[in-house]
Write a protein that binds this DNA or RNA. Sequence first.
DNA 1: TTGAAAGCGCTAACAT
DNA 2: ATGTTAGCGCTTTCAA
Lengths: 369, 369
Amino acid sequence: MSEDVSATTSTTGSPSGHSGGHDIPRRWPTGSLTDAKPVPTLEMVAALAGVSRATVSRVVNASPKVTPQIAEVVNNAIAQLNYVPNRAARSLASRRTQAIALVVPESTAKLFTDPYLASVIQGIALALADTEYTLNMLISSDTRAEKTRRYLLGGNVDGALVVSHHSGDQSFGHLGQSLPVVFGGRPLLPGESSSYFVDVDNAAGAAGATAHILSTGRRQLATIAGPQDMPPGVDRLNGWRRTLAMQGLDQSLVEYGDFTPLSGAAAMRRLLDRGRPIDGLFVANDQMAAGAYSVIYERGLTIPGDIAVAGFDDNYFGATSTPPLTTVHQPSHELGAKMAEILMALIEGKPAPRVTLLPTTLLVRASTG
Amino acid sequence: MSEDVSATTSTTGSPSGHSGGHDIPRRWPTGSLTDAKPVPTLEMVAALAGVSRATVSRVVNASPKVTPQIAEVVNNAIAQLNYVPNRAARSLASRRTQAIALVVPESTAKLFTDPYLASVIQGIALALADTEYTLNMLISSDTRAEKTRRYLLGGNVDGALVVSHHSGDQSFGHLGQSLPVVFGGRPLLPGESSSYFVDVDNAAGAAGATAHILSTGRRQLATIAGPQDMPPGVDRLNGWRRTLAMQGLDQSLVEYGDFTPLSGAAAMRRLLDRGRPIDGLFVANDQMAAGAYSVIYERGLTIPGDIAVAGFDDNYFGATSTPPLTTVHQPSHELGAKMAEILMALIEGKPAPRVTLLPTTLLVRASTG
DNA sequence: TTGAAAGCGCTAACAT
DNA sequence: ATGTTAGCGCTTTCAA
């Protein structure tokens, strides 16, 4: 805990008060000042192993037609030299980049702190970590859209993964025609499309939550739905409707929000103001549920006593609320992994389903009694 | 909202019930089935512009010694052909990758949902988005450490950014000798080191929060400190001590936690159990503060009536608590940007400070009256 | 200021 | 099974 480091403002170049300040003893080869480690090439391995470069290449690429004997020798040389293939050269020669782009629209990146998204990205990164693919993360924005397109189409990656919250984001809609692309998180495209995407089964999740509320004996169900121009908003509402329809129950207690707590509160207010009895509520996401909670308490009602509430997302909102919120958990991690898996299949020319819907799981907590 | 998409389990290859199922009309050039767009090369541009490849290269790289006239012509050709330089070829020839690695230790990635980390990463990505650098994200783990090292040292990137929560993570400590590396988020290394890193000024932030509590007239200050094997834990405690020392106040009311809510609650209990009066409390992070809150209420005390409380992090914990928590906000976004900035300077051979401490800002809310 | 030519490190036919 | 030989698309001396 040596505390001799003085606080420095963010001005670049201002040397810290630390010892050694700015005399930068760069060790890495900026010029060719040091001839320390000449970065071994395939050719050097070949020389040391006494074989041709082609053979080394074959060994490196695990070609079946190499005598174990020779392979052994070559591998030794590789180990001895600490050889690592140069990616650029490999790409150039093989015309494959072994790289995958992760495109995050900037509008979405703003919500990067959304644990759901972070988790999806993590799933992607982890799935790719054990493959030969590299992950190139790009934040695209309206102003950078062209640059992004060029990058993707410029042969810099073998395929792209797009995560986004917005259905309006058509920038990458047509991309799929020139490059393998898998959309995820939320499908960007309205209905039938020729893209590949993987998403969570929103409708089924909502239906399950609704069914659970019914199972507690409630019959006057309301819902706070999400924006109807966003697939999750639409699908979750449909799931709720589907379940009520199956029981022949009334579906008129619907109000809409925009996924924010505030909008959830407002919707709840409108719902209650209708003056009709409500004993069960499905909210399209946990944040709106948080808003609904406050209004319910405001009106002197209890949860789950008067109204059973279920949400969707499995947020900290739901986890930390009082009472803890029954909610639909999304397999965000798996979703990311699935996206990566499908993209790799596509890149390798294997068949893959255009639409993959991942099952959700219902987290039953105290809010539904 | 066409709902004709049937839910599919995660089994790859299982075609969705959707129209068009698995007949995959791949458009992108897998073989050379379609000779649609031959991907323009620099050579083609040269031909169309009627100049040499060297000249095109100069134009593309904005070399000063090109006649505006010629440049004009070349640029037109570029636009017309929609030419995009091939990164691999460029790297191979120039021996620079224009790529930067973002290394996230897997142990840290688990906490990827930590908004702080996500924000740092976002800052990095955004800062890089407007440069020519590409961001390669790798999740490293103990089992993959060697692979990661090889990747970094194999000339695949021009430099690396390492974000981590752990001070024990020495895997990348020596990397800085062969490759420009900037550590961030939390410094990995104990004290004096030869690495570059940027961090938040934890001590100053803690000192500021403590000073603020004192400014409300409190004099019996306690603190719930973080783990003393983690720099933030140490520094925040030091900040608290420093401020009290300046006022000649007692510094014995210290209990430790591990940054979790539970540990915060336990520490608060121990603090209260000492039987000494406490009217002010600085907690090393918001999560522990949440734990402290519950215990304070449990004992029938009020905030800020009986005890003024301040935290550190600017979490949702602090924002949604009752009363809202006064806390220290960290410029996580800027931290990421700064890391990128310093690394780029390093790569380009420019001098840069070894240690950069970013200032925090105090968010005064109701918990400190 | 511009062009010619020689690679960068590797893969992939084609030979042997 | 292994070696030979061309490039992959670009940058970069070196001449002109």
